[in-house]
C-alpha cells in the first residue's frame, strides 16, 4: 500500500500561548514544537497497515524549513519517506494549505491519505474534508476504527451520542481521531534511521488567503470565584447560590 500522512507542526499542548506584538499571531520563542497529537494516530494507523499489507508511508507537511525537525519526529515512528511543501509561513486559511497539499497528493498515487481530526493550534478541523472534496475522493473524518480489505474500507466515525459505520472504496481520505489506535513510542533505532531519510522539498504556489485573522485576544480573565474551604458545611450555601445567583438548577 502506498500511504500518505499529512502532518502539522503544532506547539506542545502545555505551552503557555503568548500573543505577539502584532496582535495577530503568537510569539514563537520558547515554544517546544511537536507533531500535532492527532496526526500521531494517523501515522500509527498508516504504519500498521503497511506492516500488514506491505508498502510505504510518506509524511507530507507544508511549512517553512523549521518544520523539518518535526517531520523527522514523524519519520522516527517508522515512516519511509517525507515531503516538505515549502511555505514561508503556515497559512491561516486552511483552504490555502488544502490546495497546496492536494496538488502534491494528486500525483502521488496514494491508496490512502491520512490526516489528523484537527490541528491543536488553529483548531480548524477542516483539512480531511477539504482534501477529500478537492481530490473528489471518499473521505471520512473523526475515524475511531478502520478496516481495510482489498480496495474496500470500513470506518467507524464518531458523532455526538454515537458512531456512524461508513464503507467506501480506495483511494480514500481518513481523518484520524483519538482511540483509533495507541501511537507507538519512537525507538532509538527509529530516531537514528529517520536522520538518514532525505526530505524532498517541493514548491507550491500558495493562493491568496480568504480567511483573514484580524485580531487575537486572551479570553476575558475569569473573576475569581467563591471558594469555600469548609468542606461539607459549604454545600447548602453553594446549592443555594446555584439556584439563586447562578440560576442553573
Amino acid at each position: 500500500m502506498n500511504i500518505a500522512v499529512c502532518i502539522k507542526q503544532t506547539p506542545d499542548t502545555t505551552t503557555r500561548v503568548k500573543i505577539a506584538d502584532n496582535g495577530k499571531s503568537i510569539m514563537e520563542e520558547g515554544i517546544s514544537w511537536i507533531v500535532n497529537p492527532y496526526d500521531e494516530y494517523a501515522i500509527e494507523e498508516a504504519l500498521q497497515l503497511t506492516e500488514k499489507h506491505g508498502g510505504e508511508v510518506t509524511i507530507i507537511s507544508l511549512g517553512p524549513a523549521g518544520i523539518e525537525k518535526t517531520i523527522r519526529e514523524a519519520l522516527a515512528m517508522g515512516a519511509h519517506k517525507a515531503i516538505r511543501i515549502h511555505a514561508d509561513n503556515i497559512p491561516a486559511d486552511p483552504a490555502v494549505t488544502a490546495k497546496a497539499l492536494a496538488e502534491t497528493l494528486k500525483s502521488g498515487g496514494y491508496d490512502l491519505i491520512f490526516m489528523g481530526r484537527q490541528a491543536v493550534d488553529d483548531d480548524h478541523g477542516q483539512m480531511p474534508a477539504l482534501i477529500s472534496q478537492a481530490l473528489n475522493l471518499p473521505g471520512v473524518s473523526m475515524v475511531v476504527k478502520l478496516t481495510i480489505e482489498g480496495n474496500k474500507g470500513t470506518a467507524l466515525r464518531e458523532i455526538e451520542g454515537g458512531h456512524e459505520k461508513v464503507s467506501f472504496n480506495l483511494p480514500a481520505v481518513i481523518g484520524a481521531n483519538r482511540h483509533l489506535n495507541v501511537p507507538r513510542y519512537r525507538s532509538l533505532k527509529g530516531i537514528m534511521q529517520a536522520k538518514k531519510i532525505p526530505i524532498e522539498v517541493k514548491q507550491a504556489p500558495l493562493t491568496a488567503e480568504k480567511l483573514l485573522l484580524e485580531k487575537m485576544e486572551y479570553p476575558p480573565a475569569k473573576q475569581s470565584g467563591k471558594i469555600f474551604a469548609t468542606g461539607v458545611e459549604a454545600v447548602p450555601e453553594v446549592v443555594r447560590l446555584l439556584r439563586e445567583e447562578a440560576k442553573v438548577i
Binding site: V17, V120, D121, D123, L212, E214, K215, M216, E217, P219
Partner: peptide, 18 residues
C-alpha cells in the same frame, strides 16, 4: 466578524471571510 477560540481556547481570534 467571527470570534473563534484557538489553541484550545487559550486565545480568541477575530476572523473575517474575505
Amino acid at each position: 466578524r467571527f470570534t473563534r477560540p484557538m489553541y484550545a481556547g487559550k486565545v480568541r481570534a477575530e476572523v473575517r471571510v474575505a
